[in-house]
Simulated assay, not measured.
Amino acid sequence: MKKAAIAWVSVGDRPALALWCAPLEGALFVVSGPGEQSAPGLADATGARVTLRGDHGGRIVTWPARVTRVTPGTEAWENAAPLVAAKRLNASGPTADLVTRWAADGCALTRLSPAGDPDAGDRLPDAALAEPPRGAPVVRVTRKPFRLHRVRRR
């Protein structure tokens, strides 16, 4: 878990989402909200299931997680938020500005801590558990390629 950068997190009966995370203090921290990734239901949840995958995409472990929202202004926020912000890739500006923006915009910093026995090794299912791709609003009909000059046919 300490090398994780992406975790598949499912809340309730919703499908799992790939979320950027930062490992810290034996838990995974996830930031979601305006200007950050979307994680519907995670900030208000009490539990979730976390799946970590290896370098080649294969599932290594799945574990139940206790979800705790870290509130701005608390000691937990002051300790965790700057460390998570420092690991945030492609962030614009200094770490302190990012932490301030998270607090001002109402972003949720959630802590996913292990809350039970993981499914690993022999406890993983033998089936692939593959699902068909979900529909997305970004799918559109493709146009014919643009051509600058007329193509003459003989």
Rank of each mutant, 00 (worst) to 15 (best):
Cys21Pro: 02
His149Trp: 07
Val9Met: 06
Cys107Asp: 14
Arg49Phe: 07
Gly58Phe: 01
Leu52Phe: 08
Leu24Gly: 01
Ala86Leu: 08
Val151Gly: 02
Thr74Phe: 12
Ala4Val: 15
Ala5Gln: 04
Thr68Ser: 10
Gly47Ser: 14
Ser92Tyr: 09
Ala130Tyr: 04
Gly116Ala: 04
Ala16His: 08
Ala65Gly: 10
Ser92His: 09
Gly12Val: 05
Thr95Trp: 00
Trp102His: 13
Pro72Val: 11
Arg147Lys: 07
Thr68His: 04
Leu19Gln: 09
Leu24Phe: 14
Asp119Ile: 03
Pro132Cys: 04
Val50Ser: 11
Arg134Met: 13
Gly93Tyr: 07
Leu19Gly: 02
Thr62Ala: 15
Val84Pro: 09
Glu25Asp: 15
Val70His: 03
Arg14Tyr: 00
Thr100Ser: 15
Gly33Lys: 06
His149Asn: 12
Leu98Ala: 13
Pro82Ser: 04
Arg123Cys: 10
Ala127Trp: 09
Leu124Val: 01
Thr142Trp: 09
Arg111Pro: 08
Arg140Thr: 08
Arg153Asn: 07
Thr142Pro: 01
Gly47Lys: 04
Thr110Ser: 06
Asn90Gly: 01
Asp55Cys: 01
Ala43Leu: 14
Val99Tyr: 06
Gly54Phe: 06
Leu42Asn: 06
Gly35His: 12
Ala4Phe: 00
Leu28Met: 04
Val9Tyr: 03
Thr95Tyr: 03
Val30Gly: 02
Ala16Tyr: 05
Ala80Asn: 04
Leu28Gly: 07
Asp97Tyr: 02
Leu148Pro: 00
Asp97Gly: 13
Arg101Ala: 11
Asp13Met: 03
Ile6Asn: 03
Pro15Ser: 13
Val139Phe: 14
Leu89Cys: 08
Asp126Lys: 12
Pro40Lys: 00
Ala85Thr: 00
Arg152Val: 09
Cys107Met: 03
Ala81Ile: 05
